[in-house]
Design a protein around this nucleic acid. Sequence first.
DNA 1: TGTTGTGAATGACTTCACAGCG
DNA 2: CGCTGTGAAGTCATTCACAACA
Lengths: 209, 209
Amino acid sequence: MASQKPVPRIVVSRLPVYLRALQHMAQEGKVVTSSQELAQRLGTTSAQIRKDLSYFGEFGRQGMGYEIGYLMQQLRRILHVDREWPVALVGAGDLGHALANYAGFPPEGFRIVAVFDNDPKKIGQTMAGLTIQDSAHLREVIARERLKVAIIAVPASGAQAVADELVAGGVRAILNYAPITLNVPEGVQVQYVDPVVHLQRMTFYLDDE
Amino acid sequence: MASQKPVPRIVVSRLPVYLRALQHMAQEGKVVTSSQELAQRLGTTSAQIRKDLSYFGEFGRQGMGYEIGYLMQQLRRILHVDREWPVALVGAGDLGHALANYAGFPPEGFRIVAVFDNDPKKIGQTMAGLTIQDSAHLREVIARERLKVAIIAVPASGAQAVADELVAGGVRAILNYAPITLNVPEGVQVQYVDPVVHLQRMTFYLDDE
DNA sequence: TGTTGTGAATGACTTCACAGCG
DNA sequence: CGCTGTGAAGTCATTCACAACA
């Protein structure tokens, strides 16, 4: 029986990694796997994978393991990625350009449908097939298109203001590439990508010579 | 007295975020702060900040708080970022381009000193002032330059092979932008940036309408 | 007084270990 | 027999709450 307990955030954070590994297995033609095999690939333990999945239901067969296609489908449902998510991208610099053209989004159901910048030289130009819009219209467009997901790829100095506009327009999930901690209301999700922070998390462990 | 207990990874992972916030405060001209103020900015608790810092020493003054410049300096020392780290960048696509030109690295002591790609059309060209080198020479160059830190910005299909070469050359910390879990030896640090994974960690919490 | 640093208490997460089932 | 699903045990992390001190 699946647990009714609240799902720890850390469990949720691992599910996309499981899903990604299952997709790779499927591409390799594998049909069935086990918590053991998956754990080995991911550098974790079979018990952790089984326990994580147990928060949501029973997806395996005793003695058999997991049917990869079925488990992928279930994880997509759990993560709410069994649909298309239209995404707003704010910032049309080098990083925004890379994100707008990233081939990894469409197959996963994330579709960038609007790009914003506040640079007059960029507004009106085209990026990845989309017209760059003035950030001044951010809130209005977000609200009209009912966008719930956005990516911030602007400098730190403008990021909080952008976040405020996004939230005011109705955005509930922000992937933030600006090197600053955002202040958002309860219930608005934020994920941070700051290469400097990520590098500093590793240099700690490097020998001090 | 500072604790002698082993430092939890999760504590280390928060230090760069504290450092970043302190830098912003310093830019605003602030000289002193408190665990309370810092916690408010970062959406955490003062107790957590004090406890985290207590693993490394005593950096504040009772009744007074923390001298921002001093605490920054101490965090830089703890994180081993009180020096220059030369970094190898593998992958000269859109993302590699954005990273090579990222203005946020130099002020933090991270300097991209070598760029690699395996595309004959790109090898020999210049990117951010560096000549793009053939990935075939990856291990050799890494070893010769004694590089300990690298960034992977290649497609998933090539990422494990790149990681193997990096590690063979002596790299001990990898910032991986490829959407795949890397298999590396004990002691080699890896940080993952996969926008799809980050987005999926948030869509879980979005209403299921 | 205000704020740190920290043991103690609480809470969360991971691992164990095994019943149960295919 | 092999592997899942899961309570129970064990470990780790956060929060509490207060002595100590500028």
